[in-house]
């Protein structure tokens, strides 16, 4: 019998436990309860500081920690070596990680190293009452179908899509046990090396955090119309994004892309302009509370996802829409 019910692989952002890690703790808690075993978090970094306390407040009972200056940069080879040691020490029944920038690379490599299967990019993970079998629901075929998978190896391993779960309401009175694990790292374990970083995010509000997002697609026909969208975004204080088609056409940078292979957004309001709504795109915005669609094709898939829609020429609709919004937000 494994000694840990659920081990959540934690990630740090500016020394704090990342939002996605908290969401994954929310996903793991009912599983640990069902298994009748503790939930643990794995924390790796140069200094894991207050992250253990945050994890305890979010439902973890134990924190396995590995601290080493070499872990400061989240270099995948080093992160993986340390993580491998932590997982073997914690010996979990179920292993969970967010499908984040780091998770996308680390989780499949860890699965291969542990010799276990991995259910990728899950929207839902659970254990049926009276069972220890993990059931994971994951979108496949770009979101056109849903697969339920189980693991035949141990630990049962899944990555969880960011925003699939709400983070827990923290309970600061909860405490837990910190278990430091010695990991033998040396710099030569890092095979790849980052030479430089080029930032090209849209100015202003971060897409993932925006309460309102405005985005454009193939139907805009070129890069210039994005200026009209930026105008609307400014009026609404919204983030701005794009479909893959607009990115592939070179109209906007890749960091603007919303969708399966781009960013996942969960705004209260998502206004799409000339986006057809392929399942690839919906995979990145299905968590939006209200979707608004402006598109000339009444049969476009986006209207199946939208709460409000206007069928028409985007330019005419958008110009009048933006002007009216400008007046409304002033009043």
């Amino acid at each position: 019998m494994a000694q840990t019910g659920v081990l959540v692989i934690g990630e740090l952002a500016d020394g704090q436990l990342s939002l996605t890690s908290k969401e994954v703790l929310a996903a793991g808690k009912p599983i640990a309860e069902q298994l009748g075993q503790p939930m643990a978090v794995a924390l790796l970094g140069a200094d894991v500081g207050g992250a253990a306390g945050e994890a305890f407040a979010c439902g973890a009972d134990v924190a396995y920690t590995a601290t080493d200056p070499l872990l400061a940069e989240n270099q995948a080879d080093l992160f993986l070596s340390a993580l491998d040691a932590l997982c073997r020490e914690a010996d979990p029944e179920v292993l969970l990680m967010g499908r984040t920038a780091i998770g996308r690379e680390v989780a499949p490599r860890l699965a291969a190293r542990l010799g276990v299967g991995l259910a990728q990019d899950c929207l839902e993970v659970s254990v049926a009452p009276g069972s220890t079998e993990l059931r994971a629901n994951r979108p496949v075929y770009g979101g056109n179908a849903m697969a339920t998978v189980s693991c035949t190896s141990s630990p049962q391993f899944a990555t969880v899509r960011p925003k699939a779960y709400e983070p827990p309401v923290p309970d600061p009175s909860r405490t837990g046990e910190i278990k430091p694990v010695q990991v033998a790292l040396d710099a030569s374990m890092a095979k790849s090396r980052v030479v430089s970083v080029v930032r090209e995010e849209a100015e202003g509000i971060k897409l993932e955090d925006a309460r309102i997002v405005v985005a454009g697609g193939r139907g805009l026909g070129g890069p210039e119309p994005f200026e009209d969208l930026e105008d609307l975004a400014k009026v609404l204080g919204a983030g701005i994004g794009a479909s893959r088609a607009a990115v592939d056409s070179g109209w906007v940078p890749a960091s603007w892309q919303i969708g399966l292979t781009g960013k996942t957004i969960t705004p209260d309001l998502y206004i799409t302009v000339a986006i057809s709504g392929a399942s690839q795109h919906i995979a990145g915005c299905s968590g939006a509370k209200v979707i608004v669609a402006i598109n000339k094709d009444a049969e476009a898939n986006i209207f199946k996802e939208a709460r409000y829609g206007v069928v028409g020429d985007w330019k005419k609709v958008l110009t009048a829409f933006t002007e009216t919004v400008r007046e409304l937000v002033k009043s």
């Binding site: 939208a306 709460r307 069928v311 009048a320 829409f321 009216t324």
Partner: peptide, 23 residues
């Protein structure tokens, strides 16, 4: 999901009506 299609006499009016609806 049920989409509420916002209409108007022309596309400009539909755009204005959409803004009013969201408000």
């Amino acid at each position: 999901k049920e989409c509420d299609f916002i209409e108007g006499d022309n596309e400009e009016e539909a755009g204005r009506n959409l803004a009013l609806k969201l408000r």
